[in-house]
């Protein structure tokens, strides 16, 4: 799959392969980013439409997966800045968090939250870098490419994100 020369001659078959090999990975990563599966499915669709459109120009300076993740990050960022997120989903998210009923609270106490669930409680900016580094298992350099930032600023952001997550983990007693 990393064979750049073959990808440069990309045809539908190559695109299909990229989509199949990365589909679930991208969808899950985007779900972590936006915390809404239906929205993540829409975003993933847009991601692969862009992959299709731009695949002929992919030169292979990074792995195809990092390149696809970069598109996924950009699409997710657009969504997180969008009117619908700020006015509909962001509101829902808060309501969901504060709207636990008694039963949920009891179950919640009995079953400690997983690290993954705690990641979902982080702010989008930090959640994104944690997801790329530890869920997608990208190197700092690859995270920098995916986020379109320098390695230095990624290190800083990651340091702060880890501190935020650590507080949550310790609070949960994990």
């Amino acid at each position: 799959m990393e064979n750049v020369h073959r990808l440069q001659r990309t045809e539908t078959a190559d695109f299909d392969q990229v989509m199949r090999e990365n589909g679930t990975k991208v969808l899950r990563l985007v779900t972590l980013f936006v915390k809404n599966q239906a929205v993540a499915e829409d975003i993933t669709q847009e991601v692969f439409l862009k992959v299709y459109k731009n695949l002929p120009y992919f030169r292979g300076e990074s792995s195809i997966q990092t390149w696809v993740y970069k598109i996924a990050v950009n699409e997710s960022k657009s969504y997180l800045r969008s009117w619908s997120f700020r006015n509909i989903f962001a509101k829902d998210e808060i309501e969901q968090e504060s709207g636990q009923n008694v039963e949920d609270e009891v179950i919640g106490k009995a079953n400690r939250e997983t690290v993954a669930e705690l990641v979902l409680k982080m702010t989008p900016k930090y959640r994104q870098v944690i997801a790329l580094r530890y869920y997608a298992d990208l190197s700092i350099k690859e995270v920098a490419v995916a986020l379109g930032e320098s390695e230095g600023s990624v290190r800083t952001r990651l340091h702060r994100a880890r501190a935020q997550l650590k507080k949550l983990v310790e609070k949960e007693g994990l």
Partner: peptide, 14 residues
Amino acid sequence: SLQRLKDEADNSVL
């Protein structure tokens, strides 16, 4: 915890 994030996420929220 970070090392098991992927497995946990894949087996819970995702």
